[in-house]
């Protein structure tokens, strides 16, 4: 019974020390208030520069494709399907299923599939997520909501600020 009622309390050797700790906590807060260091990336205006080999959205080079169906075979998420156009088979992709694993790019014997650096896209409905071979054949482009050009930045670890963003020239 005695053990049950006992509430754990951390031992405080010196209550004055405790008070000083509170004061220093508030002082730290005030320091950050008057000297703010923000590490927010203001996304629609600026975006991170993506590294080479980034697995973004895919694109198809229709004139190279030989219609071997290997990409549809290897796709672990069943996102890639083959469509027949004038007797020839081309892959089509459903981005609602795609997991961006890049297996199809790796397995393609003629390099007809490529990864683009594009990854920030928005769609109105699920039907738009399915790209038929013709749509799949072009580089994917979408207007940014701000209507301005996106500033590409790269993240740099900084001693004082934590993370800093510097403009990167492509």
């Amino acid at each position: 019974m005695d053990k049950v009622n006992k509430i754990k309390e951390y031992e405080k050797k010196n209550p004055f020390r405790l008070f000083a700790d509170h004061v220093s906590a508030v002082a730290t807060g005030l320091k950050y208030t008057f000297k703010p260091t923000r590490i927010t990336l203001q996304y629609p205006e600026e975006a991170l520069l993506l590294p080479n080999g980034y697995r973004g959205m895919l694109r198809l080079y229709k004139d190279i494709c030989i219609g071997c169906t290997l990409c549809a075979l290897v796709c672990p998420a069943d996102a890639m399907k083959m469509a027949t156009e004038q007797g020839k088979k081309y892959p089509m992709i459903n981005y609602g299923r795609c997991v961006f694993c890049g297996f199809c790019v790796d397995i393609c014997p003629v390099d007809a599939l490529r990864e683009t650096g594009m990854h920030d896209a928005a769609f109105q409905n699920r039907r738009e997520l399915v790209f038929d071979p013709d749509k799949f054949n072009a580089d994917f482009q979408q207007e940014m909501p701000t209507g301005k050009t996106v500033r590409r930045v790269k993240a740099i670890i900084d001693e004082n600020k934590g993370i800093k963003y510097e403009p990167a020239d492509n």
Binding site: G29, Y32, T33, P36, T37, R38, I39, T40, Q42, G162
Partner: peptide, 10 residues
């Protein structure tokens, strides 16, 4: 705003 400032946000 002030909570955001201290927590390095906007």
């Amino acid at each position: 705003k002030i909570a955001a400032k201290v927590q390095m946000r906007f």
